[in-house]
Amino acid sequence: MTAQSPVRGRGLVRRGFQHRPGAMVWVSLVIVAAALVAAIIGPLLVPGATDQHLLTGITPPGPGHPLGTDQLGRDVLQLLVAGARTAVLGALVVALGSLVLGNMIGVPAGYFGGWRDGLAMRWADLMFSLPALLVAIVVTGVLGGGFVLAVLVLVVLFSPGDARLARAAVLDQRHRPYVEAARLLDLSASRIMSRHVWPNVMPVVTANAFLNFAFALVALASLSFLGLGVEPGSPDWGRTLADNRSQLLANPWAALAPAIAIVTTAVAVTIVGDWVHERLEARGRAR
């Protein structure tokens, strides 16, 4: 821009309407909270959930089993509660891990620019040219599967997205006068990044962590569905779905219930993420 003075008098002319948290957001918050509770203390609530009752076998919903049993005779509802741990906690670890790794790479890249930036962005470009799920399938498959490996692979594959986002947000802040004023006070680069820049970048990257949470939930469920994430017989949602998908006629709920659990949790997390993003952005605009 070559403008001499910033364009004037557009405060109210510019601002649009704002959203309020609606019923959907409340419902979603409850779902996310329930999923997290189940993930943390679920196995304690339903201690015998994974015990097999092969004689019972697969049964449709009936007394004692509101959602019926699966082909190993396990109560589907109890399985859902027990399966939240791998499904939800794994995704949470992926979202947080990728947030930390991505920001550790992206924030300095954006702040310093130069070779650090070039290197980080080439790395991100490379990672971006491959879809995360595909790499996860190949790597966990060939290397022998395992839940921890799947989570680690997803952290590494999700982090370039966070890195790019953080870098772009930092670039946007880097030349603002408040950052330059901090430089003129001879503050160290790490202090400027952590105390001045990051708090202003935080809303964007936090909102993205929610989206990553939802995507990781889906990706991990997909891996277990393909038999790559967790051991066979695990109560994990994706695995239960895969194990029972050929039994749609005997007890559809054995496969549908975990499918619905995955979809509702992912949708709820996305809605909460959108809402957080809007809230934080509105707060940023009001500043």
Binding site: A214, V218, A221, S222, L248, A259, I262, V263, A266
Partner: peptide
């Protein structure tokens, strides 16, 4: 947010 395999099943 819905994974294709879950949608496919439904």
């Amino acid at each position: 947010s819905a994974p294709p395999f879950a949608v496919g099943l439904l």
